[in-house]
């Protein structure tokens, strides 16, 4: 597989290590009342879909960036590659706006 890195261009997937579902970016709140269950689901349970899957790849043999790659688990087609820090930043901003509204 070739991963089209946002700044370095097309790179061989062998340069990367894989972590799994990008939902892992959404760490549960340890102060929540349901924290025990939330962390169990976070740590161990997976959606594991057949089809489009957003997942974390680490460019270990390159610029050491974390990426969120949107890849099809049936065809291995990669349709989108983003920096994980941008995805996380967008998540935080969205949460702040949501909190401000409520």
């Amino acid at each position: 597989m070739i991963i089209n890195h946002p700044t370095l261009g097309p790179r061989d997937s062998a340069e990367f290590t894989y972590l799994g579902d990008a939902a892992l970016l959404r760490r549960p709140n340890p102060k929540s009342e349901t924290a025990l269950d939330d962390f169990y689901s976070y740590q161990y349970l997976r959606d594991n879909p057949a089809g489009e899957h957003r997942e974390l790849w680490y460019h270990e043999q390159g610029d050491r960036s974390w990426l969120v790659v949107t890849r099809n688990t049936v065809t291995h087609d990669i349709t989108k590659v983003e920096f994980a820090r941008d995805v996380k930043q967008a998540m935080i901003e969205k949460a702040i706006i949501k909190r401000a509204k409520s």
Binding site: M1, T73, V74, H76
Partner: peptide, 13 residues
């Protein structure tokens, strides 16, 4: 191979 997949084929690395 080390990544989620349902394709019954792997990659070259």
């Amino acid at each position: 191979d080390g990544y989620n997949t349902y394709a019954q084929r792997g990659n070259l690395p």
